[in-house]
Amino acid sequence: MPSKPLTRLLRLSLLAAAALSGTAQAASPAELLAGYTAQAGAQADAARGQALFTSRHGRDWSCSSCHGALPTQVGKHAATGKPIGALAPAFNPTRFTDAARSEKWFRRNCNDVVGRECSAGEKADVLAWLTTLKP
């Protein structure tokens, strides 16, 4: 019988594989965070995630431009004005429940905000911060 850490590792690698192959895979924010942390090989830092999220990186927009400085409520798309549902998982249970979907948005939005894809460590930091936000 496989030990607990081993099954956990197996589950995380399945999630990572799902993210890479683009197939939908139900997950929890905690599992996605664990996956990014394992990929980064370093502990996530919520404060660093908040700084990344709320500052601009040499371009017009920060993550906050659309999601709000505190993404616990509905945001507003900076170009179109369309409402964007809260991003913090405790305020919106659909967030970070699908590895491929999270990967898609990280890829696009980091490209718009930072001008490149975010590293696994950066994603872990942001997600670590988002999961600290509680009602």
Partner: peptide, 12 residues
């Protein structure tokens, strides 16, 4: 779509 009115809207 990767250059969609100033936004990356890329899809598979």
């Amino acid at each position: 779509l990767p250059h969609h009115y100033g936004v990356d809207a890329s899809l598979d």
